[in-house]
């Protein structure tokens, strides 16, 4: 196992389709809820502690070896918006493709066969971390970081926000990312005994509603 594999997996240029998704930022920009660095930070903090925490825990549980099919249903139950479920499965399928070429593994092949149109992205991410020799904490970090790096990058494109300001937002969120990743990994370890109901189920209604509205727009830059 190599810890550096985490850098490869968490790199924003890892070719797994994320560049076409804004993590809800496009809808929030249009609604005026993100209009600069300060409101981007608020948005990211909210997403980190809700959707970010849930996906980090799912990823950590998958990395621990919890049955991915159970985790996938748990992810469905925690994602009320059909548009977000579609996006999560699409990204899961795209990550699966990149990962099978990068870290070939029997477990990934089995999941690809069980979910040919894609399992939820955090579940795939956890299994990919496992295939790369990484642990549950690593998977949680990667997922939690993605939950804020996606909207930050998208906002640079959407608002022509100064890229240094966007990166500053991510740096300021780092201590909170530590807390969320640790909480997610703890929750995942509980799943081993207590089942998937031990996973967090924090949710952000505006992210869900915004995603539904966004999916119906005729003109948009991002797929979600």
């Amino acid at each position: 196992m190599s810890r550096a594999a985490l850098l490869v997996l968490a790199d924003g240029r890892f070719p797994a389709g994320g560049h076409a998704h804004s993590g809800g930022a496009e809808a929030a920009v249009k609604a005026g809820r993100i209009n600069g660095a300060a409101s981007l930070e608020d948005f990211c903090r909210g997403r980190l502690n809700t959707a970010g925490l849930v996906s980090a825990a799912l990823a950590a549980a998958a990395a621990l070896g919890v049955d991915p099919a159970l985790l996938d249903s748990a992810a469905d139950a925690r994602t009320p918006s059909p548009a977000l479920r579609v996006a999560a499965r699409r990204l899961g399928r795209q990550l699966m493709r990149a990962a099978r070429a990068t870290w070939p593994s029997g477990e990934l092949d089995a999941l690809a066969r069980a979910f040919p149109k894609g399992a939820h992205q955090p579940v795939v991410l956890g299994l990919v971390a496992r295939a790369a020799g990484l642990g549950p904490e690593d998977a949680a970090y990667c997922s939690a970081y993605e939950s804020v790096s996606g909207p930050a990058t998208a906002t640079v494109r959407l608002l022509s926000l100064d890229p240094f300001d966007a990166t500053g937002v991510l740096a300021r969120l780092a201590p909170e990312l530590d807390v969320v990743a640790r909480a997610a990994a703890d929750a995942a370890r509980n799943v081993v005994d207590a089942g998937v109901d031990a996973l967090p189920s924090a949710s952000a209604p505006l992210l869900e509603i915004g995603a539904q509205a966004h999916a119906a727009w005729a003109v948009r830059l991002f797929a979600s």
Partner: peptide
């Protein structure tokens, strides 16, 4: 295919959505 404001990324650097 939706390209996230970056058509060259979707055909060169990260081709996952097009492959799908």
């Amino acid at each position: 295919v939706e390209t996230g404001a970056c058509p060259h990324t979707a055909i060169r650097d990260d081709i996952s959505a097009n492959l799908e």
